[in-house]
Design a binder for these strands. Sequence first.
RNA 1: UGGCGGAUCGUCUAAUGGUAGGACACCGGUUUUUGGUGCCGUAUGUCUAGGUUCGAAUCCUAGUCCGCCAGCCA
Length: 574
Amino acid sequence: MPTSDPEAPVATDFVREAVSEDLASGRFDRVHTRFPPEPNAYLHIGHAKAVWIDYGVAKDFGGRFNLRFDDTNPEKEDQEFVDAIIADMKWLLSADPDVHRHWDGQALFGSDYFDRQYELAQELIKKGLAYVCDLSPDEMREARGTLTRPGVDSPWRNRSVEENLDLFARMRAGEFPDGSKTLRAKIDMASPNLVLRDPVMYRIRRAHHHRQGDAWCVYPTYDWAHGLQDSIEGITHSLCTLEYEIHRPLYDWFLDQLGVFHPRQIEFARLNLTHTVMSKRKFVELVKAGKVSGYDDPRMPTLAGLRRRGYSPEAVREFCRRVGVTKAASVTEMYQLEDCAREDLNRRALRVMAVLDPLRVVITNYDDVKTEWVEAVNNPEDPSAGMRRVPFGPVILIEQDDFREEPPPKYFRLSPGTEVRLRYAYLLRCDEVVKDGEGQVVELRCTVDPATLGANPPDGRKVKATIHWVVADQALEAEARLFDHLFSAPHPEAEDSEPDSGEPGYLKHMNPDSLRVVKALVEPSVAGAAPGSVFQFERVGYFCVDRDSTAEKLVFNRTVTLRDTWAKIEKKLS
RNA sequence: UGGCGGAUCGUCUAAUGGUAGGACACCGGUUUUUGGUGCCGUAUGUCUAGGUUCGAAUCCUAGUCCGCCAGCCA
């Protein structure tokens, strides 16, 4: 069995089963897949699923993989997207160390086959299987019929081969205005499958193409172009999402009539995620309305957004593995994705201490000129990450939430008269609470037990909580961007259009707290961390350094919080 | 009311006529100088109704519900 890694169990899903059968039956003697994005938008997590199916099948069967841009509509496409998609693809597939065995890292372009395609269109005309049609868009829609009513033949359907050849050549030569004529396949206007009711193959559009420039004024439609692109590249398995299922008869028809190499199209269900939206159109609306800062806003489900949020390509790959491959329409819970981030970051993130909501603690029995350094573990999951030293001193900052003047039941942290462990340092007892004029707690006066530095107390007493801290005079001031779900409703798209106002209905479900910007006080060891570096702020969450960081001020994005058992307990109590 | 496709724990999925299993979420326990991680455990599911069979999630029949299709978008 030609698997790239014989040790790995071959994943079983209906696509891979079909591919196995094709190899066993001799229908194909190799496997070659492709991912065919249109360069008109940024890639999102749904595309990542498709890429990992397309690429993953090629990899599992020891085959090849192409990235091919489906660039047949110059009015929507742009070089900006080509560049962004290539960058995203390289990032995504870098999760496979063997990627070079299956993908050469290059991009192909459907538009490079325009000449060959034009010739094949002429072949179809010569066979009497395509004709030039003068119907306007409105007339064509009317003649197409409906779901329950058959269409009627175009009055131009029976032009002679010679006339069609001549007209088609003149269409290409630019003799007719935009939209005035089309080349259509002659199939069946009464077909119950609307896709087969004489579909348009070419339309006239004088638009500047991002690669072809102004060389063409006729552009092929998806159905006519896609199968041919696959065929020309020797693709064996053309994997796509379910909405193309009804196009498969047309995909097959073109290839059969032409008698060219015939790939097999197989369709799978696209990815949907709760608490977000997943369409180009909605991305554009969110960006244009200023609801997010751009396509790489860390709250967006784009690959650029996920990357900036702190997701590694490995975490995205694991997510795609977990959601599987089926034909059932589904909506995956966002928690699935978040768990993949936690699992990945737990393994790789360096631990540091940072306080997001500080409360000043003065240690009254600690020599106020003394700074000592305590030893801290960089990553308990990875001993090779080593140790570091963290400064400790007489005035520290702890998290407001780690102190309660009146502790609720089961609260193990600091309160008047109780004792907690300061991570990597001493046991700390709260002796006195200092308040301002409004009664707000502004400072704690505490004492440490000198016998407990990195050791349990000699008398054997236990504390139930360990809290994090930073030294007041050496902490780095940073910005922390705390992200949450973009939408508070799990299924914002369920309520799409708002009849009364012009605003799309799903916007009503946006989470007003999807971004909170706070000041963070971080231990000095993170000074100079490069953008993209990932950390766990102990007991708080996973953070990565944003590209907005400067030498003067670090900016952190919260990728995901840590699981918070106490928050659950407290929620139940209230 | 045309055609195509789909339906298994709350969610995503496995089981291809032979013990309905896993992951996430949830709940409980345990370990822990992160209320993190790890480990253990509880609970929850075959759309419905018939049929075939020693035995059905799986095969058959009828129904129900869901998704997609009427761009010169992809």
